[in-house]
Design a protein around this nucleic acid. Structure first.
Lengths: 90, 90
DNA sequence: AATACAATTAGACAACAGTCTAATTGTATT
DNA sequence: AATACAATTAGACTGTTGTCTAATTGTATT
């Protein structure tokens, strides 16, 4: 997972909001879509980008596809910032 | 400075490399441009985006314009990640 | 097996981003 | 004040992004 992909994925407000929703618990694609004023197809597209950036994982459960937050990629970002700042203490 | 602007600015590899260059010391726009296979106008454009995202500050010094890294915006990113992870220990 | 529900994929379209060349602005030197 | 140097701005062009509607796939229910 490249930093480019990660930052690009995080640059969209809708995608950041999706991640925030997943903070509490995993959710089905439909449940996520229901929270936005966007078509389900659009949300599916955003979920695809998040998945491809490694920010979420997905698993089918019957008719639904459950999405779950994956925070490990965030480590990469933090490490990159650390190299920039020469090891700032956050 | 919005997260959108910040992440968008960081999503471009050239801009990330510029920030890395500025890690050591402030540099003139021309010195930065000299490190890349891109036209000076293009680099100037990138510097404008970094400035507008608050990631660098600039100051004119005679004929040159000196760019300096500004890390304070990174705090915002880290804080956002922290809210997502519910206070992960990095 | 037929129908319905959940989600994704395909294709179209407007808006935006990264690059270039050419023109412009700002500062210093002669 | 004329010229040269450093940097930015303007305008054009191509490629990418976010959204939509329509069509498709996958799974469950009847």
């Amino acid at each position: 997972m490249s930093l480019k992909k990660t930052f690009q994925a995080l640059s969209d407000p809708t995608r950041r909001e999706i991640l925030s929703l997943l903070r509490e618990r995993p959710l089905a694609a439909g449940d996520i879509a229901a929270r936005f004023d966007l078509k389900a197809a659009t949300i599916s597209h955003h979920l695809g980008i998040l998945r491809s950036a490694g920010l979420v994982s997905d698993e089918r459960s019957g008719k639904n596809v459950i999405y779950e937050l994956n925070l490990s990629v965030m480590e990469e970002i933090i490490n990159w910032i650390k190299t920039l700042s020469g090891g700032i203490d956050t």
